[in-house]
Design a protein around this nucleic acid. Structure first.
Length: 234
DNA sequence: AAGACAGTCAACCGCAATTAG
DNA sequence: CCTAATTGCGGTTGACTGTCT
C-alpha cells in the first residue's frame, strides 16, 4: 500500500528555485501553454501540473506586474470587491499585470484589515492613514524582489478572459456582467478630507458615512450607484 | 544578541466547471 | 449522454522576513 506511493515519484513541493523557473519558462516559450500535466514530464520538472500552471500564471508569465499596489489599483480593488465579492480572478482581470492570487493576498493583508479597523471608531485616523502610506512604501522596498514598481492604470477589457463555448444567453450574461464592472471601474476624481480619506467627487452625489467607515463607504455607495443606479430596469 | 511575535505572500488543497473522448 | 481528465478558482497554510521586547 505504502509502496504504491513510493513507487510513484511524489511531485516536488515548496518554493520554486530559479533553475526551475527558467526550465518552466523555456519550456512554455518553446511549446506554449496547455496540458500542464505533461509539462512536468516533458520539461523534466518534478512538479505537479497544477504547480507549474500556478507558477507560470502568478510569476513567470510576461507582463506580470509586481510590487506595491498604487492608490488607484487599491481603490479599484475595494470598489470591485464591494461589487463582486471574493471573485478575485474577475477583479484581477481589471488590473493589468496583477494576478488573482496577488489581489487576494493584498485584500487579505491590507484592505480587509483596513476595513475591519474602520469599524473601530476610536482609531486615530490620522495615524492610520500615515501608517498605511508608510506600509505601502515599506512593502515596496522590503524584500529584494525583482520588480518593485507601482504603475497604476485600469483596463476595460472584458471581465472574463474568454466566453468561448458559451451559448448566446450566457454570452449575454457575460456581456452584462462586464458592463456592470466597466461602470464600477470608471475613474473618478478624489479629494481628500482632513484625515486623508479619499472623498469621491461627483456632481450629482452626496457623501454618506456608514458604520463601516468613511473610506470604503464613499466608494461602496458610488459603486452601487454607478453599477445599478443609472440603469432604468434595476 | 536572541527569541517571540506579527505581517506578507508564494504555494498548496479541495472543489467546481469545463473539455475531450 | 457519461466518464475521466484537465483547468480554474477561492480558501488556507506555512515559510520567510522584519520588528519588537
Amino acid at each position: 500500500m505504502e509502496n504504491n506511493k513510493e513507487m510513484k515519484a511524489q511531485p516536488k513541493r515548496g518554493l520554486w528555485k530559479p533553475e526551475e523557473d527558467s526550465i518552466l519558462k523555456n519550456y512554455i516559450e518553446t511549446y506554449g501553454e496547455g496540458n500542464w500535466a505533461t509539462v512536468s514530464k516533458r520539461s523534466g520538472l518534478m512538479r505537479g501540473g497544477k504547480s507549474c500552471r500556478l507558477r507560470w500564471k502568478n510569476y513567470l508569465r510576461p507582463n506580470i506586474k509586481r510590487g506595491g499596489m498604487s492608490k488607484e489599483e487599491e481603490d479599484l480593488i475595494i470598489r470591485m470587491h464591494k461589487l463582486l465579492g471574493n471573485r478575485w480572478s474577475l477583479i484581477a482581470g481589471r488590473l493589468p499585470g496583477r494576478t488573482d492570487n496577488e489581489v487576494k493576498n493584498y485584500w487579505n493583508t491590507h484592505l480587509n484589515k483596513k476595513s475591519l479597523l474602520g469599524k473601530r471608531k476610536t482609531i486615530d485616523s490620522n495615524k492610520q492613514h500615515d501608517e498605511h502610506e508608510d506600509n505601502i512604501e515599506k512593502q515596496d522596498s522590503k524584500k529584494p524582489r525583482e520588480l518593485q514598481n507601482s504603475q497604476p492604470i485600469f483596463t476595460t477589457s472584458p471581465a472574463r478572459t474568454t466566453d468561448q463555448g458559451l451559448d448566446s444567453d450566457e454570452k449575454k450574461e457575460v456581456k452584462e456582467e462586464s458592463s456592470v464592472i466597466d461602470s464600477a471601474v470608471q475613474c473618478f476624481n478624489y479629494d481628500y478630507d482632513m484625515v486623508g480619506t479619499p472623498v469621491m467627487m461627483h456632481p450629482n452625489y452626496s457623501n454618506f458615512v456608514f458604520d463601516e467607515g468613511p473610506f470604503t463607504s464613499y466608494l461602496d455607495s458610488f459603486v452601487l450607484f454607478e453599477a445599478f443606479g443609472t440603469d432604468s430596469d434595476v
